[in-house]
Amino acid sequence: METPTWRNNVTKKNDLPGAVLALIKDAWYSGCWIQDTETGSWYTPEEFKEQWQMYYVLSKKGDRDNSDRFKVRNPLMGDKELKRKMRDATAEYLAFRSKLDAYYDFALHRKKKLKT
């Protein structure tokens, strides 16, 4: 007898480690996303559920995992942080470019003056 489709979905759900399922549920019910604090990447609960094997690592003994690196956070806070980082990076670039221009004395010069 062939296994019904609905049964496959139940089996897949049960394959999720408890820590992963807790993260996904916490994010889903709070309207938040999951952030990887090591890489700074953000995942919707649906993305994390589909690709959790790529991010979550359980030790060979099964006694430790890396779930503490994932935090459930409001994506609007992530938006605010990324904007701040972008402003800081732009300011750093402009300061560097200014120093570079001053060092090499880059300036626009006309070849000769216009006759009036």
Rank of each mutant, 00 (worst) to 15 (best):
R110M: 11
T37K: 05
D79Q: 10
R73C: 14
F96N: 09
Y29E: 15
K71V: 15
L23I: 04
L100I: 11
D26H: 07
P17C: 08
Q35M: 14
F106L: 14
Y103T: 13
R69M: 06
E38R: 05
D36H: 03
Y55V: 05
L23S: 04
W6D: 11
E47F: 00
R110T: 13
P75G: 00
G18H: 10
E2P: 08
Y56N: 04
N66L: 05
N74A: 04
F106D: 06
T11H: 15
K71Y: 09
L21C: 03
V72L: 07
K80H: 08
I34Y: 05
S67N: 01
Y93A: 11
K71T: 12
M1P: 06
W6K: 10
K112Y: 14
K111E: 13
K83V: 11
T90C: 01
E46V: 04
S98L: 09
V72C: 09
G31H: 10
L94S: 09
V10F: 12
L114N: 01
D63L: 12
E81P: 00
K61V: 02
E81W: 00
K113T: 08
T90M: 01
E50L: 15
Y93F: 15
E38L: 13
R73F: 04
I24Y: 02
T90D: 07
K115W: 03
L21M: 09
D65K: 00
R97F: 15
R7H: 14
